[in-house]
């Protein structure tokens, strides 16, 4: 009950921190898509490169987030950005690479060879084939990767409040340090709701982007 009162009294602040939270996630994942998708496409050309890139991405994702933040502080301190927005964005960007690169790579390598053959038979160049056949077919699977990345990083961004990145995690950190269950619960609820809502929204989007005929291949993860 106290928590509800707190929420109703602090709607502005909650809104502000939600925006702050999502702006970190969106900017970083936007950048991750811009980098990860081309990498995912490029590594389809070379098996060895693909193995190496996927290993590195998989290793990064096993590093606990707070350790990654910690590692970035001394490095980014050199340019005066050790704490705050930048390390948070970089961490989210790095964590998003595995799901996005892996799903792009899997989607493109899994395109039905018969379709590729047909595209070549129609006289498409490799670039045309990529643009008009392979990428459209890969979009739903890439979206599945984006969804995983978004949900995961909403949680990680909450932790980024400890390196001064703000966001909804601030309710939790203040709640703990001030022993204030109202802030604590508000923060936990909001972060959870945000993650769950994003998951459902992106799942809906993923389904909309899936051509009815290829839904079987678009399950992804």
């Amino acid at each position: 009950m106290e928590t509800l009162v707190f929420i109703s009294q602090n709607l502005d602040l909650i809104f502000e921190r939600t925006v702050q939270h999502m702006s970190i996630v969106f900017v970083a994942i936007g950048l991750a898509i811009v980098t990860g998708v081309p990498i995912g496409i490029l590594i389809t050309l070379n098996q060895k490169a693909a193995d190496i890139v996927l290993y590195i991405a998989a290793i990064i994702i096993t590093i606990p987030s707070i350790a990654l933040f910690g590692l970035m502080i001394p490095v980014l301190s050199l340019i005066g950005q050790g704490v705050g927005y930048l390390p948070a964005v970089i961490a989210v960007l790095l964590y998003s690479q595995l799901p996005i690169i892996r799903n792009t790579y899997t989607a493109i390598t899994n395109v039905d060879p018969a379709l590729r053959e047909a595209a070549r038979g129609l006289g498409m160049t490799p670039i045309q084939r990529l643009r008009r056949v392979e990428i459209p077919l890969a979009i739903p699977v890439v979206m599945a990767g984006v969804r995983i990345a978004v949900v995961m990083n909403i949680g990680i961004t909450a932790i980024a409040t400890y390196i001064g990145a703000g966001g909804l995690g601030a309710f939790i950190s203040r709640g703990i340090s001030q022993s204030d269950p109202r802030q604590l619960i508000t923060g936990a609820l909001m972060v959870s709701l945000l993650a769950i809502a994003s998951d459902y929204f992106l799942l809906w989007l993923q389904k909309r982007l899936t051509p009815a005929s290829s839904s079987a291949t678009a399950g992804g993860h």
Partner: peptide, 17 residues
């Protein structure tokens, strides 16, 4: 599925309460 979507920091926070 919903449970695994909840961020771990939130789970820890809720366990304090």
């Amino acid at each position: 599925n919903i449970g695994t979507t909840i961020p771990t920091l939130a789970i820890l926070a809720l366990s304090i309460t």
